[in-house]
């Protein structure tokens, strides 16, 4: 590799998004344009540079020696497929999209994917949003939370046990701060500001190492929303203090949460056998299923 070629290659290698011809000329003012162009062409031919296009501009990106070694073993089709998979980053790419982008026949794509997979260069993952789609990404890349579903998913499936356990812990924490400890029959006044917020609950989970997964504030709020819909806690608007003004200005309210007293009320309808009876729709005054002959009633009355 000549001096000019070496300088161009080093320059392109230093910039991950590639370098423009004008920038190369600027860096090598003493070299004539013809020498630079010849150098670039040589490097492109050797596979040490690759062309990138953004709008009308052309960039040259340096290919590292490891990458060259890797690419050297691939066919042209495999290279094309690999490049598109690499560009998809941690979002992954679906085969149908790959086919549209490369214009290659399905059989060629399948063969290339199989070859790349056998070399452990790419891996296939399933998205929680589209469980039937197979997405491809580089082996070294970890899938984004969009694909994995975030902390609530384990092996592409919602981890309901983990959610339930975490929700129980959150509920217990909120309950402990919802009523005065010295007299649980008492309630706090309406202006009380000591109810826990999502930030405090996040800190509680982190400090007590309740979860091994890193949970964001949004994740905690999702969990608390679920508890609100379970009727276990209630969302309370923060009091009109200075903090409220600040948070309101940024369009986000730091809600407080209060636990509801657990009522052990049963529904009168499900208290009697008819409320849960599997043949309730066929029950009438006459026929084989009647309240007078009902076995469930007999069991209920003898209980």
């Amino acid at each position: 590799m000549g001096d000019v070629d070496g300088a161009i290659y080093n320059l392109a290698l230093g910039l991950p998004n590639g370098v423009e011809m004008a920038a190369i000329q600027e860096q090598l003012p003493q070299s004539p344009l013809e020498t630079i162009v010849n150098g670039v062409n040589r490097l492109l031919k050797d596979g040490k540079l690759e062309l990138l296009q953004s709008g009308n501009k052309v960039y040259y990106r340096g290919v590292s020696s490891d990458e060259m070694k890797l690419m050297g073993a691939m066919s042209e089709d495999e290279k094309l497929v690999y490049k598109h998979i690499e560009n998809s980053g941690n979002e992954g790419i679906w085969v149908r999209i790959l086919k549209q982008l490369t214009n290659l026949p399905q059989t060629v794509i399948t063969r290339s994917l199989r070859a790349l997979e056998s070399q452990v260069l790419i891996k296939s993952v399933k998205s929680v949003k589209h469980p039937t789609r197979k997405l491809y990404m580089l082996t070294s890349v970890s899938p984004s939370s969009e694909i994995t579903g975030g902390p609530w998913y384990t092996d592409q499936e919602m981890d309901t046990d983990f959610i339930e356990q975490l929700a129980r812990q959150c509920h217990q924490f909120i309950y402990a701060y919802s009523y005065p400890r010295h007299n649980p029959e008492m309630v706090y006044s309406a202006n009380h500001t000591g109810y826990p917020t999502a930030t405090q609950i996040k800190r509680f989970i982190a400090e007590n190492r309740i979860s091994n997964v890193d949970l964001s504030l949004d994740n905690i709020e999702e969990l608390l929303t679920m508890l609100v819909y379970d009727g276990k806690i209630e969302r309370i608007a923060p009091a009109l203090d200075a903090d409220m003004g600040l948070s309101a200005r940024f369009g986000k309210t730091d809600w407080m949460y209060r636990a509801q007293r657990i009522s052990s009320k049963d529904s009168p309808l499900t208290d009697i056998p008819c409320g849960r009876c599997p043949v309730a729709n066929r029950c009438s005054n006459t026929g084989s299923i009647t309240p007078a002959k009902c076995e469930y009633f007999s069991q209920w009355l003898s209980f």
Binding site: L269, I272, C274, C283, P291, A292, C294
Partner: peptide, 13 residues
């Protein structure tokens, strides 16, 4: 519907 059916059944029983 469930309530009416339930009360009827109780009366009949």
């Amino acid at each position: 519907r469930g309530i009416f059916q339930g009360i009827s059944n109780i009366i009949q029983r």
